[in-house]
Design a protein around this nucleic acid. Structure first.
Length: 113
DNA sequence: CTCCTGACTAATA
DNA sequence: CTATTAGCCAGGA
């Protein structure tokens, strides 16, 4: 794609995430070309609308948890993911080992850091 | 132009 | 597990 901005890359990558799977900010940043630009990744998603043509709800932080987003976003995100078959743990986390895009949890997640 | 903030991550203590 | 530091990209003051 080579879009003009980091944003377009992030959006394109998120659109490639299949249903029932989740992806971390770091994974997106890594695929976008800057492994350390995870912060900009979150900023890009923050600029998205709730009805954007991008499955932003499949994007979670490295702990497999929904980030501290404003408004009622977290609730909507969890409901959408559960509707796609993603199961949340009692602590509100998802098993990236199983639901991760690469099945390994991006760059290698073992539960927490 | 510079400075600060932000849906983050990794390394270190 | 938590707390702190440094790094990335983009936008607003």
């Amino acid at each position: 794609m080579r879009a003009g901005s980091f944003y377009e890359r992030v959006y394109a990558i998120v659109r490639e995430v299949p249903p029932g799977r989740v992806v971390t900010y770091g994974e997106i940043a890594w695929r976008a070309g800057s492994p350390l630009a995870s912060r900009a990744t979150g900023y890009a998603l923050n600029a998205l609308r709730w009805d954007a043509d991008v499955p932003w709800w499949r994007v979670v932080n490295r702990a497999g948890r929904i980030s501290d987003r404003p408004g009622d976003g977290p609730v909507v995100q969890r409901e959408r993911l559960e509707a796609e078959g993603v199961v949340f743990k009692p602590d509100g986390r998802v098993d990236l080992r199983h639901y991760g895009w690469d099945g390994t949890g991006a760059s290698g997640l073992g539960g927490q850091q």
